[in-house]
C-alpha cells in the first residue's frame, strides 16, 4: 500500500532531480523492477566507467530495503562476483541500518560513496580486500582494468550495430563463464564484443 505512493514520488524525483552521477529508471513499466546507472567517481579506479545496477523493490517497501546489486562486474572489496553489495543501509536492523527515511536515491548515493571509499575491514571479497589493504597499486591497476573491460562506454554506435548482428555468435568459453555469474551477462558480453570490434 505504502509502496505504490512512495515509488511514484521517488521515480518522479529520480527523473527530475537525479543525484550527481546517478540515473535510475523503471524497467519496462514493472513497478518493482528498476535499473540504475552509477558513474565511476573522478580520481577513483572506476573513473569513466558506467556501472549498471538492478534495484528490486520488495512488497513491504519502504519497511524493507530495496535489493540492489551490480549487473556490471566491478573489482571492489565489498562487492562480490555475483554483484551483491555489502553495505549496512541495504539490510534491515538490527544487523543493518535501513530506515524508511532513506530512499532509492540515497542508497544509490551510498553505493557511489562505497565505490569511492571501500571498506576493507568488512570485506565480501577477501582477496580483493587484502590487496586493497596491503598492495594498493595492484588493486588500483586491477580495478581500472576491470572498469575498462566491463564498464567503459567507449563502444560507439557502429559497434552497437555490429553487436546486434553478432549477437548469435558464441563468445569464448572464458568470457561466458565469467558473465554467467551475473544476471546482466548479456550486457557484459556485448561490451566485451564491442571492444573486440573496435
Amino acid at each position: 500500500m505504502q509502496r505504490a505512493s512512495r515509488l511514484k514520488r521517488e521515480l518522479i524525483l529520480l527523473t527530475t532531480e537525479p543525484p550527481p552521477g546517478i540515473t535510475c529508471w523503471q524497467n519496462e513499466s514493472r513497478a518493482d523492477d528498476l535499473r540504475a546507472q552509477i558513474l565511476g567517481g573522478e580520481g577513483t579506479p572506476y573513473e569513466k566507467g558506467i556501472f549498471n545496477l538492478e534495484v528490486t523493490v520488495p512488497e513491504r517497501y519502504p519497511f524493507e530495503p530495496p535489493k540492489i546489486c551490480f549487473l556490471t562486474p566491478i573489482y571492489h572489496p565489498n562487492i562480490d562476483s555475483a554483484g551483491r553489495i555489502c553495505l549496512d543501509v541495504l539490510k534491515l536492523p538490527p544487523k543493518g541500518a535501513w530506515r524508511p527515511s532513506l530512499n532509492i536515491s540515497t542508497l544509490l548515493t551510498s553505493i557511489q560513496l562505497l565505490m569511492t571509499e571501500p571498506n576493507p575491514d568488512d570485506p565480501l571479497m577477501a582477496d580483493i580486500s587484502s590487496e586493497y589493504k596491503y598492495n594498493k597499486p595492484l588493486f588500483l591497476r586491477n580495478a581500472k582494468e576491470w572498469t575498462e573491460k566491463y564498464a567503459s562506454q567507449q563502444k560507439s554506435a557502429s559497434e552497437t550495430l555490429s553487436e546486434e548482428v553478432n549477437q548469435t555468435e558464441a563468445s569464448t568459453p572464458k568470457k561466458s563463464a565469467i558473465s554467467q555469474k551475473r544476471k546482466g551477462s548479456d550486457t557484459s558480453i556485448r561490451e566485451k564484443k564491442s571492444r573486440l570490434d573496435s
Binding site: M1, Q2, S5, R6, R9, E10, P62, F63, P100, S101
Partner: peptide, 8 residues
C-alpha cells in the same frame, strides 16, 4: 516521511 504521500 514513510510513504511520501499526504493521504493514505
Amino acid at each position: 516521511g514513510i510513504c511520501y504521500a499526504y493521504r493514505l
